[in-house]
Design a protein around this nucleic acid. Structure first.
Lengths: 338, 338
DNA sequence: CTGAGGATTGTTAACGTGTGCATAACATGA
DNA sequence: TCATGTTATGCACACGTTAACAATCCTCAG
């Protein structure tokens, strides 16, 4: 069962296996009638092509890789999910989607042209650099998402984190907040840097000098947000708002505030970044910045397939607009506000 | 570059390509010295075997499939993440892990022995049945996780949902609750049924007759939990506790309560099921039941690899113990309780 | 000196598919 | 009638690897 080959079909149809191969691949060379006959025989035998054999002769693996920096530390489940959905939506049949964490590799030996027709790297850290260079050197079609990269021939799609952070900070300022703390993301992540830059930029263009005391380092996860908020609440001069570089940290911050008897947003405002799935459903619903992970992944997958199949693509590199999502966790300090 | 084959190595080493093949596969047939020589040449040439060719002759694809019921509706990101991590931790090198939603297939044509050495189905619905039968008929090594299945030759690992729900309900009863509502899971999911059974069983063995009025249908997601809770709060005789069949629904329930001016757990108790990642960090921290998804997935992957490599395995089928996680969302109604 | 047998290596075919080139049948036009 | 072109098909090989079988060399007992 299921071990039918084109030779079996050829025997039954009274033709050579070459003709069968051509017929099943819709070659214009062969007679429409025989083509139909062969296809119907193939159908009735429940023929499935042997992809290993195809791979060998066509030099294509039919595998696409979706690589994350890590599947263990720092990758949030919502992030993974959005990326997977975006890519998966595009590739459908015809390709296998292989998911892996880069840090799972002891060596990159298994990463080569024969094993991957193309690779999407959802890059969250500069630690991915060696992997990206390795893949690039082996001339594997390559798309890097989420983190800015400067390499010739590598296509790059990234969210505009900095302007997202800028707009969030601007919004907090518009609400009348003047002393705004930031809980920063993981050290070494470019996204941490971009978000802080946006924050600083907004403060400065409002004529406010940033205070070092209000910069607290976090790790992007719940616990670190909790701990960071505890430190903020111990400050002699407490800020009126806290901008968290991730929603996960914002959740931790809200919890810390609650434990200290403070209500969000009445006693202190908290803003997040990411718009994870549950951010809308917790109490208070989180004011945050949406990163279009799924759209970015979809666009990445489309570009990768186009690249592999040598179709033309307009913009190799693109920035995806982040979006301010206003909910209930930030309070306006201005009088007469609705 | 990277197009070195064993024939190239053979030429350089002055031997036949067969010898090279044997050397690289550590065959005992060949001289240790030539073996070393060949290996070092292979290393210096940066040789990587062509897996398509290996696949063809060895009749193995080196692909493992991890299939979810859907990647779109009802699968929570935490669930996906835990499963992926569990499986990924085990297989490491040697296999490609291919992730897909069953409902992405228009036909199962691409699912066959040649394309998959083995398959893990993380089954969340009876709708998976045709897929499972298809794979089983094609005699693909197959492990079904999470949902009970009765098929000869198909290995099955499931969480003990019923006893988890039983223990949770028992705990609510011990806390003095007598009228306990249940927000049920998605219709047709076996897990929904098992959780309700555990709930009913616990009530009955405490001598309490379940009330139909307190059974509210949900869909496992945030919104449906929110809606279900709204209906519960409109009941003339309001229950003192609500057992939600998922944490996502419990979050929705907490939000609904808050909007109606009720505090959890002071005014009403809420219990969840799943122990998703953020359950510990929201306010109030959720009392829930932990399903060992990651452990189950790990065990499933181990069994699958053993099955493929024809190694012996003790227990083909197993139930994984769920665990009561007591946090802050359930209040004891008994006096003198701490 | 000879034959047996172990150790090591080589020859050749096979896996299932696609493709360059040859071939055959037939039509066309001068 | 013959040269030429068009259409449909087959032959033979290639892809990179493994494996059954054959071959060679060497050692050692009789």
């Amino acid at each position: 069962m299921s071990d039918v080959t084109i030779k079996d079909i050829a025997r039954m149809a009274g033709v050579s296996h070459t003709t069968v191969s051509r017929a099943l691949n819709d070659s214009p060379l062969i007679n429409p009638e025989t083509k139909e006959r062969i296809k119907s025989i193939a159908g009735s035998l429940n023929y499935t092509p042997n992809y290993s054999a195809k791979s060998l002769v066509l030099d294509r693996s039919y595998n696409l890789g979706l690589f994350f920096t890590t599947l263990h530390q720092g990758t949030s489940s919502g992030f993974l999910y959005a990326a997977l959905r975006g890519v998966n939506d595009v590739i459908k049949d015809g390709y296998n989607l292989i998911v892996r964490g880069i840090d799972d590799y002891k060596s990159f030996h298994h990463v080569n042209r024969k094993s991957f027709d193309g690779i999407i790297v959802m890059s969250q850290s500069a630690a991915d650099q060696p992997f990206i260079e390795y893949a690039s050197q082996r001339s594997i079609p390559l798309i890097v998402l989420n983190r800015q990269i400067e390499m010739e021939g590598v296509w790059n799609l990234i969210p505009d984190d900095q302007s997202g952070a800028y707009r969030m900070t601007e919004y907090l300022l518009q609400c009348g907040h003047r002393r705004i703390a930031i809980i920063e993301g993981k050290r070494g992540f470019k996204s941490s840097h971009a978000r802080k830059e946006g924050y600083l930029e907004a403060l400065r263009s409002a004529g406010i000098e940033p205070e070092e005391e209000l910069f607290i380092r976090g790790e992007y996860d719940f616990e670190s947000g909790y701990r960071a908020m505890m430190r903020i609440l111990e400050l002699a001069a407490r800020p009126s708002a806290v901008f968290c570089s991730s929603d996960d940290m914002a959740l931790g911050a809200v919890k810390a505030a609650a434990e200290r008897g403070l209500r969000v947003p009445d006693d202190i405002s908290v803003a997040g970044f990411d718009d994870t799935l549950y951010s809308a459903f917790i109490t208070p619903a989180l004011t945050t910045v949406r990163r279009p992970i799924e759209e970015m992944s979809r666009a990445g997958a489309e570009r990768l397939v186009a690249l592999i199949e040598k179709r033309h693509v307009e913009d190799h590199n693109r920035m995806f607009r982040t979006e301010l999502v206003i909910r209930d966790s930030v309070k306006s300090l201005l009088e007469g506000d609705e």
